[in-house]
Each structure stands twice: as structure tokens, then as C-alpha cells.
Design a protein around this nucleic acid. Structure first.
Lengths: 272, 272
DNA sequence: CGCGAGCTTGATGCCGATCAATGCATGTGG
DNA sequence: CCACATGCATTGATCGGCATCAAGCTCGCG
């Protein structure tokens, strides 16, 4: 048992800071309330995510043109699908607030979480190739996305080299990310996978101004397991092991990274 | 043991047709001999792979412009790297003849094959995001690629919507392919993985005019295993099992698919 | 003709899946 | 406000699939 650590966790239930995405939404657009499929005018040029999102590298003039293209915001309740496999592809989506998962399903019912997306990240690339979506994107909490009509985005990126380049970079990075997941799924053991996942998550949260050590998971153990090719029990056991070793403080979905180095060693040094 | 089947295989060493990529190269450019890094003029507009490659959907005029962009062909010997992780990214590559693997490496030496590429398929997307390649591309047999300078390709695709769209489609399909691999690695068992791999391979060979049932593997058991997240012994055992069951005829790298339905059922129907 | 890379096959062991029971937090209706 | 339901998480016991270790085997090639 890890009585000491759990005792600590119990004694300080609020010690773990809350990097809730609602904090982001409050900063970004304090007046926005979740209205379903609402058309709200919030310009890319004034968005606090523009350094992480599609506008990277655009001039003011180009940014203005992008603003006029991204007119619609869409709100989703937790559990709602932004799109599902088979739907006609029309647009990409940029996460404004909230958290998503994407998943592919096999005919037999098996499914695989292929990614988790947070604020500033783009969704929908899977649909370009066949003009139909090939996976589902589901909100893991109440969320809001910017709708980017893809035909118009292509038009605009024929005019602006910087936009074209950024679009290509984002797609390329998605390919590279998936290479990393393939490496993880193909050659890492359970604890290494979880460590890699946690490091990736904290890094992305940090890029958004959150603490690198305290976080709240927006997904269940089962969803983490699906992403990592593990069963939920294995994920749970790995969390407990990390806690026993003093690497992590785990209290339900609240995590605190106590020894980041240990996680990094687990991912890189296979010899242990 | 599968004496009957191996006996058959022995009795008909040439019964399994040879879908060697040399056949393709002969058709495409009978005069070309493997000259290293040779600059040879072979137009996209007259390439027999144009229906599978970047030129899909282009008009004659557009095709001509693409021709002028793709000036350099590069020949590689078996085992040579087209590019390696860390190299500056300048170009995409289209496989003209031969066969490649791409692989990512972890710091500790572990590596993972992320894909196999055959004639008409594009390589190099991993480099766009960071302007450096993030994986290695290695020729599995003597091969030839068309070099597509990416800056110029972006310029041209700003002029030609059809080219732009095709580029986006190819990248999107790469993302979707990787989703499929993630599903495979995350949730399938060894034989299911091999079955899925073989079906994918025969389908792509068929699209290039080869038999759907007879093929020659261009990669080792170890490379297949790396791609599928398995050890080479497991791959070998799965091949033997398929042979025992009459699903496959296996003779070293020569394969004949005897019961395609059985393979399909393995992939889809999890209930077995 | 013999070497060596790649492949096959067997024996054994371990990691993670599976099955099962319990615990914990949240929410809902009596 | 408590009783209960429900969804999620933890933990234990057992099992099975694949990795690992270890021989041989095959075939292409110098």
C-alpha cells in the first residue's frame, strides 16, 4: 500500500492545481456561453491560441482574411460527436476550448483511440483523402471548436504561401506524431507507454501555459488504455506502481508529477 | 508438418509468379539501368504510374508543368538510405521502381518500421513539419525514385488546385493508413495482424497490375515483425500456421494466397 | 563448396489480459 | 437527507499469447 502518499493526497484534496479547460475559455472569450452550433464572431487575430493554431506565421493582413473564413463556432456537450466515420467531409476544426478524442472502429466493434486533442489543435484531416470522415471525434468535456471550411481554406492557401506552409506543417506533424505512437505500440512495455503518454500530455499542457507537474485527466482509464493498446486494469496498475515509487501522485483523475526524470528515463532507457 | 504443401511448393518452384518490381521498371523505362544519382528525363506525363501517383486528376497542361519540376531521378542500391532522420528536408520522393521501408528509431536503439512503400507511392512527408526528416527511408531492393523539390511543389500547387488537392489527399490517406496501423497494433492478435498486412499488400500489388494471390515479399520476417509489433519468430510461426491451415502457401519469401476469405475473416471477425 | 544471413521450430517464462470482487464519487429520487 | 443506482477505479488471482532463448535448417552467393 502507499498509505503515506494517499494520506497526503487526502489531506490536500485541492493541492493539485486545476488546469481546467474552462480556464482557457474564460481567458479567451469570457462572454461566451455554450450555445449549441452558435455562430459567434471571435477573430483568429485576437485569439490567444493563434501561436499554436493555424495562424502561425501569418501577417496581419493574411490573418484578417483567415478571420473572414472562420466564421462559425460550434459548441459541443461532453460525449457529443463533432463528426463520425462515414460523414461527408467539409471542414477542419480547431479546438477552441475543451478536449476531444478521435477513434477508429473496426467492423467487429473493436475500437482504438487514435488521439487526444486540446485547445489550438486541429481535427478532421482524416476526411480529406476520401471526402468522408474515417474516424469519430468525440468531446470529452463541454467544448467549442472553430469551423474551417476546407474548400475555402485551400483557396486561401493558394494565395498565401505562409498559410499553405503552415497547413502542410500541421499535417506533417500529425504524421510524425503517429509514427511515435506506432513506436510506442510496437515496442514499449506498459509502464513505458504510460510514461510516454504522460510526458506528451504535460508538455502540451505546458505549451498552453499550464503547470508541467499538475494536471487533471479528461479521459477515463479505458480511453487511455485504448490509446496505448492496454486494458484499463493495466493502466490503473501502472498508475499505482508509479505512485508506490514516488514518481506520481494519483488521486482519481488528478495527477501530480513528482519525478519527471524517472518518467523520461523509463521512455528512453530501455535497459530497466 | 505440412509435407504435402511444401512438397507442392518444391515441385513447382516457379509456380509462384514473380511480381518483381523489375517488371515495372522494364515496362516504365526499358532502357534505364541503375546509375547512381543519375539525372534521367522520364516525364510524369508518360509514366505508367501517373494514375497512382501525384499526377492524379491533372490536366495535360498541368502535367507538363509538373514534368518540368520533377527533373531528377535517383537510383539506390538495396540497403541504401534515401534519407535518414536528422537530414534537412528538401524534397518529396515518388517511388518509380523498387521497394522501400521507413523506420523511426528511439534513442535506446529500438526501432519501428512505420511503412513499406512501392511504386507510385510518396515518401518524405515526415520532414515537412520540422524541415528535417524524422525517420529513415531505406531501399529494400535496387530502386529508383523521382525527386520532387517541395518548395517548387508548393509553388505549383498554389497555381493548380487539382495538384494542391491531390497533395492533400495523399497526406490525408497517409494519416488514415497510420490510424489503421494503430488499430492493428493496439487491438489485434498476431495472426490477425499478419492477415491484415497480407491483405493490404496484395491489394496494393493488385492496383499495380500484379496477381492478387501470388507475391514475393521484399522484406525479411524481422522487418514484417517490426512493422506489426511482433518478433520475427512469431511472424514465422504465423506463416507456418497459415500454411498448415491451407490459407497460404509459403516458400521463403514466395507466397500464394489460397484462401483470401479466411484472411479477411481473421481481420474482421474478432470472434475466433 | 562452404559460409552466413535469414528462416523454422521447440521449450520455457513473463507480461499483460481476463475474470472477479470491492471501493469510491457522483447523482437521483424517495 | 439518506438510500440506492451507476459509472469509474483499484486490486487480487489466474491464464494465455507472445517473447525469449536455443538449436538446426535452407538457400543464395562468393
Amino acid at each position: 500500500m502507499h498509505s503515506t502518499l494517499t494520506a497526503v493526497a487526502h489531506a490536500t484534496p485541492d493541492a493539485i492545481a486545476e488546469p481546467a479547460s474552462t480556464a482557457v475559455s474564460q481567458r479567451a472569450a469570457p462572454v461566451v456561453v455554450p450555445i449549441h452550433a452558435a455562430a459567434l464572431k471571435v477573430a483568429c487575430s485576437s485569439c490567444n491560441l493563434r501561436e499554436l493554431c493555424l495562424p502561425v506565421g501569418l501577417s496581419d493582413g493574411e490573418l484578417k482574411r483567415l478571420d473572414s473564413l472562420v466564421e462559425v463556432r460550434q459548441s459541443l456537450k461532453r460525449g457529443e460527436a463533432l463528426y463520425t466515420a462515414g460523414q461527408a467531409f467539409t471542414s477542419l476544426y480547431a479546438v477552441r476550448t475543451g478536449f476531444f478524442k478521435t477513434r477508429v472502429a473496426a467492423e467487429d466493434g473493436r475500437d482504438q483511440v487514435t488521439g487526444f486533442q486540446m485547445a489550438g489543435e486541429l481535427l478532421g484531416f482524416d476526411g480529406i483523402g476520401t471526402e468522408r470522415h474515417t474516424c469519430d471525434a468525440v468531446a470529452l468535456e463541454d467544448s467549442q471548436v472553430c469551423v474551417i471550411p476546407f474548400g475555402q481554406l485551400e483557396s486561401l492557401s493558394r494565395q498565401f504561401g505562409a498559410l499553405q506552409r503552415q497547413l502542410h506543417k500541421v499535417m506533417s506533424r500529425e504524421i510524425v506524431r503517429e509514427h511515435g505512437v506506432m513506436l510506442l505500440l510496437g515496442s514499449m512495455r506498459a509502464e513505458e507507454r504510460l510514461a510516454a503518454f504522460l510526458l506528451n500530455l504535460t508538455q502540451r499542457l505546458q505549451a498552453r501555459g499550464f503547470s508541467a507537474s499538475s494536471l487533471v485527466l479528461r479521459m477515463t482509464r479505458e480511453e487511455i488504455g485504448s490509446y496505448l493498446g492496454l486494458k484499463l486494469e493495466t493502466v490503473s496498475r501502472a498508475f499505482s506502481k508509479f505512485q508506490d515509487e514516488g514518481v506520481l501522485e494519483v488521486k482519481q483523475r488528478h495527477l501530480r508529477v513528482l519525478d519527471e526524470e524517472a518518467l523520461k528515463q523509463l521512455v528512453n532507457g530501455s535497459t530497466c
